[in-house]
């Protein structure tokens, strides 16, 4: 790891200033991803701005929404009574990610900012357009079992690794960020981006913007939601495919639905067309199967990840069955 400057920011403004003044500065919160990447020489910021002193750890109910501070720990959110009661989907998703120790370190903001776990991104001896623009995509013709089936580009087929973000995108969250020009709100679905021609950019934050909090509007999904993650071992592994499913069922009819997938795209993959197909239908396996088919439209497989085209819809159906209490 290179030697770098280290600075503790005492205000969000100071942190933003530090970013503005040094193009090679990075924010460090839990460090669970950044320190790892720095050890492997994948990232080499010359300055780290520690934001752990910022008062951004609170989880609170505001009018019509819950606000979670960007520095709230993953474990803190997962275990929070309010979250478990109102958004159990988020709690489940958080607990499906990483390990207890990492969840004790990782912040909510950092979780959103984590980078892909693509093998080619991680190994500086191999080509990767995300790490070194123009060097090529190692995964495209390589070992791409873990890779994306939606929204890929010629340049990159990496997936976003977060579980938390899959729940947040399903729950219509909004991210609050601050920057040199002040605060702004970003709908969660627009926070992360597809690789396109600029796979080095994971998200739509400006380089000197800082995440302050994330808000989840109140909803009617707490009774019927489920996060299902399929991976290569029973715990502590990234998703092959994961699904966040949330239903508002009245009588036996689906009144509202939210559906998102992980492990399939460069960003948390919201399935709005499939959601539409669920609304107004009875909560049955047949309905779910039809929605799953719609969800997979436009999916494109590579050499080693064709199984996701079959696993994906199966997991959607299973997650919905669990959400609806059919299992």
């Amino acid at each position: 790891m290179i030697q770098f400057q280290y600075e503790r920011a005492s205000t969000a403004k100071a942190a933003v200033n530090a970013l503005t003044n040094n193009a090679n500065a990075k924010i460090i919160a839990g460090g669970t991803n950044l320190v790892d990447l720095m050890k492997r020489n994948v990232m080499a910021p010359t300055k780290l701005v520690d934001i752990n002193a910022l008062p951004l750890r609170e989880i609170r109910q505001q009018d019509g929404k819950i606000s979670i501070g960007a520095m709230a720990l993953n474990s803190q959110v997962a275990d929070d009574k309010l979250i478990i009661e109102k958004h159990p989907l988020l709690s489940q998703a958080l607990n499906a990610g990483a390990s207890a120790q990492i969840r004790n370190m990782a912040s909510v903001g950092g979780n959103m900012m984590q980078r892909t776990r693509c093998h080619y991104f991680y190994d500086t001896a191999l080509p990767c357009n995300k790490r070194e623009p123009g060097s090529g995509c190692g995964a495209m013709e390589g070992m791409n079992r873990m890779h994306a089936v939606f929204g890929t580009s010629e340049k990159c087929i990496a997936v976003h690794p977060s579980d938390m973000c899959i729940a947040l995108v399903a729950l219509d969250a909004t991210v609050l960020v601050t920057g040199p020009k002040g605060d702004r709100r970003i709908p969660f679905e627009e926070l992360h981006r597809l690789p396109g021609n600029q796979p080095e950019k994971d998200n739509n934050l400006q380089k000197d913007e800082l995440i302050i909090s994330v808000e989840i509007p109140d909803n009617s999904f707490s009774k019927n939601s489920h996060y299902m993650k399929i991976r290569d071992r029973a715990s502590y592994a990234f998703a092959l495919v994961s699904v966040a499913a949330a239903l508002n069922i009245e009588g036996k009819v689906i009144k509202e639905a939210r559906l998102a997938m992980g492990g399939v795209a460069h960003k948390p993959w919201r399935l709005k067309e499939a959601e539409k197909a669920l609304v107004g239908k009875p909560a049955t396996e047949e309905t779910f199967r039809q929605a799953a088919e719609i969800a997979m439209q436009g999916a494109k497989a590579y050499k080693h990840n064709a199984f996701k085209l079959k696993l994906g819809p199966n997991v959607i159906v299973e997650a919905l069955k669990n959400a609806a209490g059919l299992v």
Binding site: G31, D36, Q101
Partner: peptide
């Protein structure tokens, strides 16, 4: 790299991975 847990210690009573914790922090 934070993938095995062998380095687990308690910091302020919480279990964390010392391999991903910068000492200065």
């Amino acid at each position: 790299y934070g993938q095995c847990g062998a380095c687990t210690v308690h910091v302020n009573g919480q279990r964390v991975l010392s391999c991903l914790s910068l000492a200065v922090m």
